[in-house]
Design a binder for these strands. Structure first.
Length: 203
DNA sequence: TGCCAGGCCCTCTTTAGGGCCTT
C-alpha cells in the first residue's frame, strides 16, 4: 500500500527567500487512507519570531529557544517521509520551506507535492472560499487541536484529503484516486476537470 | 536606496492587473 505524507509548516513569515524560517513542522503518514504514524516538532532556526506570528500561531521565541536545531529536525523529518509523496494545503508554500530547510541541512528534497488547495478549487467551486479551515467547515469535517499549529493543521489537511478521495470515488466514480490522478487533477485546467474525471471513471 | 513571495486563477485579459492562499 503506497504511503502518503501530509505536511504543515509554521514559519516566521511567508518567504524563505527573504529570510523567513520554519518554527514547527508536523507530518501525518497515511497508508491506504489510514493514519499510521505522526511526526511533530518545534525547531530552532536561530531567528526571532515576529509578534504578529506569535499572535497567529501561539509559538513564542521561548518555545523555539528550547527546541532542537532546525537541521536536526529536518533530518528526522526527511527520514520520516522517505520517498512518499507530500500533501499540503497551498503546497507551493510548504514546498518552498521544505526545500529551503532541507537545503540548509544539506539534504535533497525529491518528493513530489500534492496540493489540497488546487484540488479543492477544481472540485468545490461552490465553497465560500478555499482556506483550509473554511473547507473543513464546508464539508462538516472535525477540527482537532489548535488552528495554526502544525499538527492541528496537518490533521485538518488529512481530513480534507480524505473528503477529496471520497468524493472522487462516489461523485466521480473514480475507482482508484491515487497519487497519479491527484497530480493530474491539480495540474489540469478547470475546464478540463470533467473530461479527466470521465477518463478515470469506472463503468 | 529602498523594497522585497509567488503560483494559481479570474476577467472589465492575452503587450495586464488583481485577488486568493499559505505564515
Amino acid at each position: 500500500m503506497p504511503l502518503t505524507a501530509v505536511i504543515d509548516f509554521e514559519t516566521t513569515g511567508i518567504s524563505p527567500g527573504c529570510g523567513d524560517r520554519a518554527t514547527e513542522v508536523a507530518i501525518v503518514l497515511l497508508e491506504g487512507g489510514r493514519v499510521v504514524d505522526r511526526f511533530q516538532s518545534l525547531m530552532n532556526a536561530g531567528v526571532r519570531i515576529p509578534s504578529f506570528i506569535t499572535q497567529l500561531t501561539g509559538i513564542t521565541n521561548a518555545m523555539v529557544a528550547g527546541a532542537p536545531d532546525a537541521a536536526q529536525v529536518m533530518t528526522q523529518a526527511s527520514r520520516f517521509v522517505g520517498d512518499a509523496p507530500l500533501v499540503a494545503h497551498n503546497a507551493a508554500f510548504d514546498r518552498k520551506f521544505w526545500q529551503a530547510e532541507l537545503d540548509r541541512a544539506g539534504l535533497a528534497a525529491p518528493q513530489p507535492f500534492i496540493c489540497t488547495l488546487l484540488l479543492s478549487r477544481r472540485l468545490y467551486p461552490q465553497a465560500p472560499n478555499h482556506k483550509l479551515g473554511s473547507l473543513v467547515d464546508f464539508h462538516g469535517l472535525p477540527r482537532t487541536g489548535q488552528a495554526h499549529r502544525a499538527l492541528a493543521d496537518a490533521e485538518m489537511a488529512v481530513e480534507l484529503l480524505g473528503q477529496i478521495q471520497h468524493d472522487l470515488r462516489t461523485r466521480h466514480r473514480v475507482a482508484s484516486p491515487d497519487h497519479a490522478l491527484l497530480m493530474a487533477l491539480q495540474r489540469c485546467a478547470k475546464s478540463a476537470v470533467g473530461a479527466l474525471m470521465a477518463r478515470h471513471a469506472s463503468t
